[in-house]
């Protein structure tokens, strides 16, 4: 093969950072527009509300991104969130100390992630299939456990956590940083992060280079399951109930956030800050549309259009950069 000399290319080093800045600019632009066009957007109350709305999807999107970078997909996260609210509610109501209840709920998320890894690596199932199967069956298991009812959580301290703020910022948003910062270090500054990218780019080449591909895949789905269970705990705290039908469609919002944040569904391209920004852009659009009295049905349409526009321009830029 005689590929020609490729024109000198600008270093791609800051590509992620640059794209992140563009997204940040978009987010700020949306905020400025909404502050000017509505009286209520810039209120402390609304901003807190918006941060709460965006936080949970943001955390889901981080876990989802790990999976997408390996070239996979995790459709189960919404169902895991709902299931986790049930587990947390049942444990707390049974008198298990809150701390332990949270830990056990997180372990359930880990177990679900490990099951996905097992299905993909050992049974050879496509990620789409195994996580789709979990999506429907977890909802079913949750409904069986609750007989289709909601479980009210009788622990005020647990519920107050999600309503309270620390240093004027909602606790839920602090949770985004709690997840986001270690996730950033993990993805961009640890060898396991590099392996996620290399497996997503070329699993065979990675294997021949000594990367444990199976373990890497297990890790990605486990982290996604863990993030989803964590979001389940936060949601249980926020709504004060355990209900397996909660978080319907959140998996798609998480995937959309990730993709808006520059993650490639073909794998090997992604970051942590991108999906976080993507999640808050989506939250802002929904919030703003509410304030502007835009029909809720239109919000869905707008979200869809936005995904197409952002991903299209991102693709254009990537190709143009070559």
């Amino acid at each position: 093969m005689s590929t020609e000399a490729i024109p000198a290319e600008k270093p791609k080093r800051n590509y992620n950072a640059l794209f992140g800045l563009t997204l940040l600019a978009l987010l700020v632009l949306l905020w400025v527009i909404l502050s000017l066009s509505t009286s209520s957007f810039a209120s402390a109350n609304n901003i807190s509300n918006l941060l709460r709305q965006g936080s949970m999807i943001a955390i889901l999107a981080v876990g989802q991104t790990f999976v997408i970078i390996t070239g996979g997909i995790d459709l189960s996260v919404g169902a895991v969130v709902g299931f986790a609210t049930v587990i947390a509610a049942m444990l707390i109501n049974a008198g298990v100390p809150v701390f332990l209840a949270i830990l056990l709920t997180l372990l359930v998320g880990v177990a679900i992630g490990l099951f996905h890894g097992f299905g993909i690596v050992k049974m050879g199932l496509p990620p789409f299939i195994i996580t789709l199967a979990t999506l429907t069956s977890l909802r079913g298991i949750g409904l069986l456990m609750t007989n289709g009812n909601s479980i009210s959580i009788n622990n005020d301290a647990f519920q107050e956590f999600s309503r309270n703020s620390f240093l004027g910022v909602p606790n839920l948003f602090w949770m985004v940083l709690l997840v986001g910062i270690p996730a950033y270090v993990f993805l961009h500054h640890s060898r396991w992060g590099r392996y996620l990218f290399s497996v997503g780019s070329n699993a065979e080449a990675s294997r021949l280079s000594g990367v444990n591909v199976q373990r890497t895949i297990f890790m990605a789905y486990t982290l996604s399951g863990l993030c989803a269970a964590f979001v389940g705990v936060l949601l249980a705290s926020r709504i004060g109930i355990g209900n397996p039908t909660q978080a319907e469609g959140w998996e798609l919002q998480a995937i959309a956030s990730s993709v808006i944040g520059g993650t490639s569904l073909f794998g090997a391209v992604g970051s942590v800050h991108g999906p976080l920004l993507g999640a808050f852009i989506l939250a802002t659009i929904n919030n703003g549309a509410n304030l502007l009295n835009v029909n809720a049905f239109w919000q869905r349409v707008i979200t869809g259009v936005l995904i197409i526009v952002i991903v299209y321009f991102d693709g254009l830029r990537r190709r143009g950069g070559k």
Binding site: V185, H189, R191, S198, S201, N202, E204, A205, S209, G210
Partner: peptide, 30 residues
């Protein structure tokens, strides 16, 4: 098919087998 992660940087490809060595515990030494 087997040799390279084509859509990743040259540096990552070159270092792939030795990331363990150039990491201290958790972090990669830049």
């Amino acid at each position: 098919d087997q040799g390279l992660c084509l859509n990743l940087p040259v540096g990552l490809n070159l270092n792939l087998p030795i990331y363990k060595r150039i990491s201290s515990n958790l972090l990669i030494s830049n």
